[in-house]
């Protein structure tokens, strides 16, 4: 536990510095986009947020599976503590997308598959939180939450593929693992840095919030009393 404490504060500061440097680089060093001008620079917030919001859901789904199969209590705590953070990052992705939409599409909201599916993801996160909070029996609540996360994970590939399956206004993803990136390397490096930095910050928040979960749920156990 103490080692985790120290490691996670290191990760937090390293990620924060990385993210700030990437943003600085992205905002001031990289050139303007030929088509979109300066407005594209919001990708250093938008892309990490939307990427992380989906990754967090996948992480939740894995943790839920671990909880349901091997009955590891800790992963149930993890699921519960990721949910609000996932909701916040999805919200950031939606808001930053809206702000980006004004200069590029001329409107802050369109009923387009990608945006709607991100909104669905946001509502799903909120639904998960309210489902868990409505049961006073935590063991039951953990079980139901994990089942719902797993069932809901069928939506993740749909969100991922929505840009390709339905012809939409939203541009296809700028970076994919398999293909050559669709943006210039000058922009790619800070973008990559900002994703890693953002991921690090979110990971630290997840650790912090699961620590809180553990403390709250196990407060009657003797090891917690020794720890605190």
């Amino acid at each position: 536990m103490y080692q985790v404490d120290r490691a996670y504060s290191y990760i937090f500061y390293v990620s924060l510095v990385l993210y700030l440097v990437s943003i600085f680089w992205g905002l001031f060093v990289t050139p303007e986009d030929f088509v979109q001008g300066n407005s594209y620079r919001i990708i250093y917030l938008h892309v990490p947020a939307s990427f992380i919001s989906q990754s967090l859901y996948i992480a939740m789904a894995i943790a839920s599976a671990i909880f349901l199969i091997w009955k590891v209590k800790l992963s149930a705590y993890l699921v519960r503590s990721i949910a609000p953070i996932g909701a916040i990052t999805t919200f950031i992705a939606l808001i930053s997308g809206s702000i980006w939409g004004i200069p590029t599409w001329g409107t802050w909201w369109v009923w387009d598959a990608r945006i709607v599916s991100t909104l669905i993801l946001f509502i799903m996160y909120l639904g998960l939180i309210s489902l868990h909070d409505s049961f006073s029996n935590h063991e039951k609540a953990d079980k139901f939450l994990s089942i719902l996360v797993l069932v809901g994970s069928v939506n993740i590939p749909i969100i991922k593929m929505s840009v390709e399956w339905w012809s939409t206004l939203h541009q296809p993803a700028s970076i994919t693992i398999s293909d050559k990136p669709a943006i210039d390397l000058v922009m790619l490096y800070p973008l990559f840095g900002s994703i890693v930095g953002f991921a690090g910050i979110v990971a630290c928040l997840v650790i912090l919030s699961s620590k809180l979960q553990i403390l709250r749920r196990e407060r009657n156990k003797s090891w917690i009393k020794n720890y605190v």
Binding site: V116, I120, I123, G127, S130, F135, N155
Partner: peptide, 24 residues
């Protein structure tokens, strides 16, 4: 079934998002 004793609003809230892709 999920929200068995907690009213159907909660159940709908958590399952409606699953059905929205189907509506498309």
């Amino acid at each position: 079934a999920l929200s068995l004793t907690k009213g159907s609003v909660l159940g709908t809230l958590v399952t409606l998002p699953l059905l929205l892709p189907l509506l498309i």
